[in-house]
Design a protein around this nucleic acid. Structure first.
Lengths: 108, 108
DNA sequence: TACAATACCTTGTATCGCAAGGTACTAACA
DNA sequence: TGTTAGTACCTTGCGATACAAGGTATTGTA
């Protein structure tokens, strides 16, 4: 079997949550996010990240601002909006529910 | 926003894992699974479950046997194969990794 | 025989992650 | 000035999957 596939499926829905967790404390641009998620042992591809950020922006959960870079083109720094913070609180609850579900099933 | 969507996305990849957790101790047929997952606060639709079970069967992780019912047509009871148990062990590890990732990001 | 209940399965749609490829801006250097 | 390398943003095509809706088959009962 390819548990790889299942594994990536498991991470699928978590991505959005993890990214919003990342942005909770500080603005980040795409490469920041990729790198910091990598440190947290979650791999994200560019082709995944950019559409996701656009989606969250479109839904009003994220905003962004352009910032100059010391080398290279300017960067789009994403920030959690207040609506995004509310959504994040709900996702916290969802995560806890999933955690409860899995632990319930594991301890049966 | 519809955190409902995100929430269902979060649960998406977990389904396979949860079902295999369910089957670890005892054979179940579809309605058993739906009901017991419901008790664990995870909602699954029939149209989701049947293809998923077929997929796991096709991949050799599940087997099944027909059993008579006291009322109604016979039922297909699914069982974890030994290959399925190995896969489940890997999914346990994947789950723990995700748990670590989320907690890491939450405590930053 | 007709009907309701139960159980299994399929089809069409939407969403999402990912691989690959494309565009644009900046800096360094010949 | 022209070229090249590096960085950053974005899009397209594909495969996988959950879900809603609808379909088929078996059983028991009136």
């Amino acid at each position: 079997m390819n548990t790889d596939n299942t594994k990536s499926q498991m991470r699928k829905g978590m991505l959005e949550y993890c990214i919003m967790l990342l942005l909770r404390h500080q603005p980040c641009y795409a490469n920041d996010i990729i790198q910091r998620l990598h440190e947290a042992r979650m791999i994200v591809m560019e082709g995944t990240l950019y559409p996701l950020l656009s989606r969250l922006k479109r839904d009003g959960l994220l905003g962004y601002e352009w910032r100059e870079s010391t080398q290279g083109p300017p960067r789009k720094y994403y920030v959690l909006t207040s609506e995004g913070q509310q959504a994040l609180a709900q996702l916290d609850a969802s995560w806890e529910e999933i955690e409860r579900t899995v632990n319930f099933l594991k301890n049966e």
